[in-house]
């Protein structure tokens, strides 16, 4: 179980545009073992999707550019692989579920064709065999197999997301990256899709990176959590540690903004301020302008990662002993 599958070190991805450099991902580290699920949590614009696209090597270039880092997957650095080798990994060993099921499927191809395509590319099956397997995959996600000749517009949103999941899981990937897989769905469908993903993940022992801004989803599905802010991972820990002993002021702020059922409150308690503009990040700790505990030194000194033991890591000057908690 504790075999390392994915090891990302110091990954930096920027978008170079006419209006300046968007510093989307700034030196993040992620470790993931086989069969484990990591929740990657953060606000919109924190760099979660860019991280995921970086692992797939699908950051749109131009304007996106992976500037540095290593992404070691099954012992190979993905960033150094030739494009042809990378293609053999995409959809096969690493696959991805995208945020919006409404737009992720090709509207002019039947869902069966789209499913069979990925199977054919990676498993070298004949047309008929691939279609047969596509039907089985559809049934696995709860869609009748005979609907493989239907087009995406003939399915509901939740069903489309099931098709997307079936495509992602068709080749038994080692790693599944799910980018806000339930955000575009309504609540009852969300629960169904999450259950489905959980079940399939256990069945195939797939490792997963679940990108979300919903801490409730994280609590339900993940083994560990990484909190992302302005392109950095500010805190990472096991699920229990993070939920029971959150350390970083930003993480505390996130928990603080969830309303408590037992207390009666007039207003929600959001984190003050907005995400910084990624073309113009604050000096020092990127969270300092919004941090209730910030001192002058936070404006100058960039925090290093502090290991609090048991894999609980945090990037904050408080834990370096430079600022009072």
């Amino acid at each position: 179980m504790n075999e390392k599958l994915l090891d990302i070190k110091n990954l930096t991805i920027h978008y170079i545009t006419d209006d300046g450099v968007v510093k989307a991902v700034n030196g993040i580290d992620i470790e993931l073992n086989k069969g484990e699920t990591l929740g990657l949590v953060g606000e919109t614009g924190a760099g979660k999707t860019t991280t995921a696209l970086g692992i797939m090597r699908l950051v749109p270039n131009p304007p996106g550019k992976i500037l540095s880092g290593e992404i070691t997957f099954e012992g190979k650095d993905l960033l150094k692989l030739p494009e042809g080798e990378m293609r053999k990994i995409r959809g096969n060993k690493i696959s991805m579920i995208f945020q919006d099921p409404m737009t992720s499927l090709n509207p002019v191809m039947t869902v069966g064709e789209q499913l069979a395509e990925v199977i054919q590319i990676h498993e070298g099956l004949s047309n008929e065999e691939a279609i047969e397997k596509a039907k089985k995959m559809l049934e696995m996600v709860g869609i009748p197999g005979e609907r493989h000749t239907d087009y995406p517009h003939q399915f509901s949103g939740g069903m489309k997301q099931r098709v997307v999941i079936a495509i992602a899981l068709a080749c038994n990937p080692q790693l599944l990256i799910a980018d806000e897989p339930t955000t575009a769905l309504d609540v009852t469908i969300q629960a169904q899709v999450l259950d489905l993903m959980k079940r399939l993940k256990e069945e195939f022992n797939t490792a997963m990176i679940l990108i979300t801004h919903d801490l409730g989803v994280v609590a339900e599905v993940c083994d560990k959590v990484a909190i992302m802010y302005a392109g950095e991972i500010v805190e990472s820990a096991s699920l229990e540690d993070l939920f029971e002993k959150p350390k970083h002021p930003y993480t505390l702020g996130l928990f603080g903004s969830i309303p408590n059922l037992e207390e009666e409150v007039e207003r929600l308690n959001p984190i003050k301020g907005l995400m910084p503009d990624p073309t113009n990040l604050p000096s020092g700790c990127p969270f300092h302008p919004r941090c209730p505990k910030a001192k002058d030194i936070c404006k100058i000194q960039v925090p290093k990662t502090t290991d609090l033991g048991n894999g609980h890591k945090v990037r904050c000057l408080i834990y370096e002993g430079l600022v009072e908690a």
């Binding site: 797939m56 699908l58 293609r87 053999k88 990994i89 995409r90 959809g91 096969n92 696959s95 991805m96 995208f98 919006d100 737009t103 992720s104 499927l105 090709n106 509207p107 395509e117 990925v118 590319i121 990676h122 997307v164 495509i167």
Partner: peptide, 14 residues
């Protein structure tokens, strides 16, 4: 620029 083109690339299509 559509999402389904990204999906196709993510499937490992040439």
């Amino acid at each position: 620029r559509q999402d389904y083109i990204r999906t196709a690339r993510a499937k490992g299509v040439e």
